[in-house]
């Protein structure tokens, strides 16, 4: 049944797919995971703080973003960011934002909502005696967080964080709605140019599957390695 197919198209476009597409996808995944975890951790700390204002602000952020479809947020930021920046900086015309920067900011902000829930669970999983012990040694809030609570919370939650990263990796394909050149977008471009839709989409699916599968396997291996001895 594959007699009419031309898988040569994959070989011909491979350098472009990897150099442009896959690099974009993987860089975006990695950077927005890092950004999302950092921002998400700060939001989690706000939600768990004793200040009512911070609690409400943190909860509002998470609940708001989690109730929006990702595609909508991508659209929004891509089209609104130049105007927001114009407003913020007081420039006379909309400030152009690069495609990559726009996608990175979008995913960082969006994923932070999910990462913050993970980190919140992680922080809450640490026994109350730990911050008490840190305080008893004379550490302030930030020292206690940085040296005692967060390292443990992060380790406990690493498998979940990486699982969320795999989801994020797949979600980055949604940037196609604003025609950004991620892996799926690049494959799609070649597919339409050469009229080889089926071949290219099968290939793209296989690549996504292999990377996600391999990453899941890695998570499982890692889980055993990093567990804190109790």
């Amino acid at each position: 049944m594959f007699s009419d197919f031309d898988f040569g198209v994959i070989q011909r476009s491979l350098p472009y797919l990897i150099k442009e597409g896959l690099t974009f996808t993987l860089t975006l995944t990695a950077l927005s995971t890092i950004g999302g975890v950092i921002l998400g951790t700060l939001i989690a700390m706000a939600r768990l703080s004793s200040y009512r204002v911070l609690q409400v602000a943190g909860a509002g952020y998470v609940n708001f973003l989690r109730s929006l479809p990702l595609v909508l947020v991508i659209f929004w930021f891509y089209f609104l960011m130049p105007y927001i920046l114009q407003w913020v900086t007081g420039a006379s015309s909309p400030v152009p934002v690069g495609a990559f920067a726009s996608a990175l900011i979008t995913f960082t902000i969006f994923e932070a909502a999910y990462f913050s829930e993970i980190m919140r669970a992680g922080i809450q999983s640490i026994p109350r005696g730990q911050p008490a012990a840190a305080a008893a040694l004379g550490m302030n809030y930030w020292q206690s967080m940085w040296y005692i609570i967060l390292p443990q919370a992060f380790r406990n939650m690493l498998p979940v964080i990486l699982t969320q990263t795999i989801i994020l990796f797949q979600d980055t394909s949604l940037v196609y709605v604003v025609s950004l050149p991620d892996f799926l977008g690049a494959a799609s471009k070649v597919a339409q140019r050469d009229g080889r839709l089926v071949e290219m989409y099968i290939f793209a699916a296989i690549v996504y599957f292999i990377i996600s599968f391999f990453a899941s396997w890695l998570v499982k291996r890692l889980q055993a390695r990093i567990a804190i001895i109790r």
Partner: peptide, 19 residues
């Protein structure tokens, strides 16, 4: 914090930092 740094405390459940 400064005052606590001068007061040693030992807890029922040890509370060593496991990591």
């Amino acid at each position: 914090p400064k005052l606590r740094s001068r007061v040693g405390m030992v807890f029922q459940h040890f509370e060593l930092f496991p990591h």
